[in-house]
Amino acid sequence: MTAKSVGGARVERADEDDDGRDGEAGGVGAGFAKAGDFAVAGPRRAPFGDPLVEFLLRLGDDRLILGHRLSEWCGHGPILEEDIATSNMALDLIGQAAQLLRLAGEVEGKGRDEDALAYFRDAVHFRNCLMVEQPKGDFGYTTMRQFLFDAYSVLLWEALVGASHEGLAAIAAKALKEAKYHLRHSSEWVVRLGDGTEESHARIQRSLDELWRFTGELFERDAVVEGAARAGVAVDLEALRSRWDAIVRDVIDRATLTIPADVVMQSGGRRGRHTEHLGHLLATMQIVARSHPGAKW
């Protein structure tokens, strides 16, 4: 290539050799394979790992990251009773995450336990959805996010209680009870805030508007979902979506709120393509563990 398009104009590059290698690149590239020997064409997307491991990481990471966001409220809630409730739900979610990540590590078989997975992976190796990693926002944002996630979680655990994978089915049975309580709590608060004052209505409507673009990702089917189904962990995401819609619409109506129309959905978390927020969350979460590699706590 001897010409390059910059801002629509063709710019002559007289300093390049015929094979496209200029002097500088040749210097940096010293020690690498010669360009001609290297297959530069790569796949558009990295292939998925073991679907069951990936599926368990998705479940575990969703709850670890959301539990982390909830735990940020501890001591800073609007009422003491909510400090207690929020901590309680953070405990449930992080407790579920620990079990799920332990199971993911066992299935993976590379000797990684739940702490290795939580503390020694970088952001691009996390598999949580984008919704849970968004900053905690105000109490309305936290409440709306919990509600949208809780409704999804209850339905997901209902489906997974019947999984032929015994370890996961056992986790699902306990988690379902917890998720049902969480959904009741968050639904009540969505209604309270939606129907409360003009200000609370405006705030929680804004949160719903902001969060809606992250809801599509919850129901995306891909090779991991299909592979997990073949491994005995089947979830019918389409059926789940329509039941989720019904629960969400009922509560949103009672809260006198409106689901935003024509929203372009965002996704990528399931493949490690996160928003910039996750890196900062992990920097906080992992700092002590990573500063003392090999230490026991």
């Binding site: 982390h68 501890c74 901590s87 405990l91 503390y119």
Partner: peptide, 24 residues
């Protein structure tokens, strides 16, 4: 509460949250 988000293992994180919750 200042150390909940930085607790160095999940077990320690859970017991710290539970402790702060007890205080509330």
């Amino acid at each position: 509460g200042n150390w909940i988000t930085r607790a160095p293992s999940l077990r320690r994180k859970l017991s710290l949250i539970a402790k702060v919750q007890d205080e509330a």
